[in-house]
């Protein structure tokens, strides 16, 4: 087999010309989807973690219940529940003026992913907040720092050092799980892959998808390492 034949098997120039641009689009959609829901999920997750650690029994229970539900059921089920389940209540959503949201696959997907990753991130944040030594809270109190200053300047930076590793894992899992979005008509990386395959019936399309996912994950992994080193520079 010549080199050209081999190349045609894994990276056929014709195929690339036809579907390459679509793959770029898919890549961007996947990136946007993951970045958006991961960030929103981080905010929600932090609130859930704080609720879980609060002294308010009701907040604790609510947050624990939320985490239990979203970690205990498959993301796919959650997405379908949102898009097809809630999305079928057209009349209701029209009444409350939210139909534009629930009829849209993109919004539903972002919401489902956000709600799901928030539960995992809440547990990560909770653990990392508990990992900060009690003496740090005491020192902050003894200096009469406000609660907000204590949280943002003293506790959060230290807990992030602990959280960053597990958060990175969650992000990577999410990048891969985001392929599920293609099941509700989103043309993310997996969406365009399926489309391209259904037209070309060439298996190398899936190879491209795999390599591209691998590439994103690798970029994320390296950036995280960099951030981790920066956050922990005082530990040397």
């Amino acid at each position: 087999m010549s080199f050209d034949q081999l190349l045609a098997l894994v990276l056929d120039p014709d195929l690339l010309e036809r579907y390459g641009p679509r793959f770029i689009d898919g890549l961007l959609v996947t990136g946007k989807l993951v970045a958006l829901s991961f960030t929103l999920g981080a905010l929600l997750g932090m609130l859930l973690a704080l609720a879980r650690l609060s002294n308010n029994l009701m907040l604790q229970r609510l947050s624990a219940g939320y985490i239990y539900f979203f970690r205990g059921s498959p993301l796919l089920a959650q997405l379908f529940l949102l898009y097809y389940g809630l999305g079928s209540l057209k009349g209701f959503w029209q009444d409350v003026g939210l139909w534009w949201f629930f009829r849209d696959a993109w919004y539903c997907t972002v919401l489902a992913f956000t709600l799901n990753t928030a539960a995992y991130q809440a547990e990560i944040f909770r653990g990392s907040l508990l990992a900060v030594a009690p003496g740090q809270y005491e020192a902050a109190k003894a200096l009469s720092l406000k609660r907000s200053t204590t949280f943002f300047k003293v506790i959060l930076p230290q807990s992030l050092i602990v959280a960053i590793g597990p958060l990175g894992n969650e992000l990577i899992l999410m990048i891969k799980a985001s392929a599920i979005a293609s099941l509700v008509t989103i043309y993310d990386l997996m969406g365009v892959t399926k489309l391209a395959f259904s037209r070309s019936f060439d298996f190398q399309i899936y190879l491209w998808a795999a390599v591209l996912y691998l590439l994103i994950v690798e970029i994320v992994r390296r950036s995280l390492k960099h951030i981790e080193a920066r956050l922990g520079r005082h530990l040397r």
Binding site: A133, G135, Q136, A139, A142, H234
Partner: peptide, 12 residues
């Protein structure tokens, strides 16, 4: 002001 046995400086 308070000084603790284990210093409790902010390590970061």
């Amino acid at each position: 002001g308070m000084v603790f046995q284990h210093f409790n400086l902010f390590p970061h």
